[in-house]
């Protein structure tokens, strides 16, 4: 089928007949809406799109998508996506996960899916809490966070998800916020366009068990001053007045004010999504409110052969090498090595 023959799909085509069952006011509704809105962008027929999820509130999302969907087990969605994409490179594979699912029980799989560059788009809903199990600390809960399982506060340092996936050589890294719907939609689009392992962290609000976890900097009234919207090829400028910026002093980022102390736009760190050195991605990923504005946008986007491409390449090159020696005969393979005949 050529592009022109493809039926034009709309958000409606991607809505399943199932009632959505997240708590009223949950940030997941917005993520679902942006996901459904973005899907027509890619020109992929819906039967060729698969949503795979683990366990947690996020894990429900595939039920609401009118595509193929597989709600698997806790932490393991990436493994299933690896097998599916390996067996079926023709499919578009999305993985929906949460901070507990991806970073705690599924931490190992996350690392390996990224280093393998499995061609899947992983959306991680980060609400810094276990919501489905009714409010325990997650690997992204801030130290000291009091929850049902940590009544005196957590004593564990949180994981910085983007720092982790950068260390694991993820080829696409981005962050957005559930309520910043336009930006989120743009990030979903960018993730979908990427070939290779895409990791999109969505700062998502759990209004029941961890309400306002991100409010300090995501709230409309303060976000201009407290968040940094990354744009490829542009200097890192933020603030309601657009007068603040980030300067990189060696390995140390600094917040500077343009026009003060002789600082000009030319001194600012210019964002390069395609920077091959992930260590600068990691510096960016570690910038956090209140010391820094929290960056959102595409942190990193580098081309790298995907796992399924390499799998297929090896098979094809082995086939070609073998074909040069004559047709493959399985019967001969059974008789490999020394044989003898009894008559």
């Amino acid at each position: 089928m050529t592009q022109s023959e493809l039926p034009v799909l709309t958000k409606k085509d991607f809505e399943s007949d199932q009632d959505v069952r997240w708590c009223p006011g949950c940030g997941d509704y917005s993520i679902l809406a942006q996901t459904q809105k973005t899907m027509p962008d890619f020109g992929v027929p819906k039967e060729k799109i698969v949503f795979i999820s683990g366990i947690g509130c996020s894990g429900r999302l595939p039920y609401y998508m009118n595509t193929f969907g597989f709600h698997t087990i806790h932490g393991r969605a990436a493994t299933i996506a690896t097998g599916l994409k390996g067996a079926r490179p023709d499919l578009m594979v999305w993985v929906i996960t949460g901070d507990g699912d991806a970073l705690s029980i599924g931490g190992n799989h996350l690392i390996h899916a990224m280093r393998r560059n499995v061609d899947m788009k992983m959306i991680m809903f980060n609400n810094r809490i276990y919501g489905l199990t009714k409010g325990q600390a997650s690997p992204t809960s801030p130290i000291g966070k009091k929850t049902k399982s940590t009544p005196m506060g957590t004593i564990e340092t949180p994981i910085i998800p983007l720092n982790l996936v950068a260390a694991a050589e993820a080829s696409f890294i981005a962050r957005s916020v559930d309520t910043h719907s336009e930006h989120l939609q743009e990030m979903m689009h960018r993730a979908g366009e990427h070939t290779g392992a895409a990791f999109l962290e969505v700062l998502q609000n759990c209004n029941i068990f961890n309400d306002g976890a991100w409010r300090d900097f995501t709230d409309k009234s303060v976000k201009e001053d407290r968040m940094l919207v990354l744009k490829h090829g542009e200097p890192m400028i933020f603030g309601a007045e657009k007068n603040k910026g980030i300067r990189l002093n060696g390995l140390q980022p600094e917040v500077v004010t343009i026009g003060e102390n002789g600082v000009s736009v030319a001194d600012l760190w210019v964002h390069d999504e395609t920077d091959p050195d992930a260590s600068r991605t990691q510096i960016l990923s570690r910038m956090w409110w209140p010391d820094f504005p929290v960056p959102v946008g595409v942190f990193r986007r580098v081309p790298r052969p995907t796992h399924d491409q390499l799998l297929v390449e090896q098979v094809e090159s082995a086939k070609a090498a073998r074909a040069a020696k004559g047709p493959v005969d399985l019967q001969k393979l059974l008789a490999a090595g020394e044989t003898w005949t009894v008559s």
Partner: peptide
């Protein structure tokens, strides 16, 4: 591989069976 067989050395035992389930879901 010349017979079209794809193999993956997984990161752990769970990932191995997970990938197998994923491949089976895809019809392999």
């Amino acid at each position: 591989k010349h017979l079209g067989i794809k193999t993956v050395q997984s990161e752990d035992e769970i990932a191995a069976i997970g990938a197998a389930v994923g491949a089976a879901y895809g019809g392999a």
